[in-house]
Amino acid sequence: MKDTEIIELQEPRLSVADQFYVPQMLVGMGTTLKHMFMTLTGKDRVIQYPEEKREDIPVVEGGMNLRTYRGVHRLNKDEGGRVKCVACFMCSTACPAHCIHIEAGESPWADREKYPIQFDIDELRCIYCGMCEEACPVDAIELTHEYDIVGLTRQEMIFDKEKLLKMYDQTVEKEPM
């Protein structure tokens, strides 16, 4: 660092009101008081989560935009109920958090070469950016609107292929492919 790069900042000179402190303080306390009234009269308050959910609220009122919301992943199935994924590793390559682990193998089906023997997503490590969805050439991986996933251990939060396919079954009616 050169001396010329150092910028000395002077504290701004206080006005009389600033220096007396009380008027400025009252302004601040007025703001909090306003919020108290707003909250108590129910005009402005946070969403009461378990009872109210963002997906039930219009977007303009701060609700969830379901068109763009990115939640937990699912692995889509094709018409035959088989996993759509072809184990091309595009999602794990695109993933900035390195949370997708795939092990590929030769598929048991005649119409396809490759399929994932193992497909794990670490939902704790994932940053829900949706890059995997973008990268997928066969639309096999998708981000659903589910966000309230819980687990007792870290291991439980690593979703394997079965869990991701189950996620598809759970969400396919609400969110068709």
Partner: peptide
């Protein structure tokens, strides 16, 4: 409660 009200919570 006061903290909540000032922060728009219940």
């Amino acid at each position: 409660k006061v903290a909540s009200w000032t922060q728009d919570r219940i």
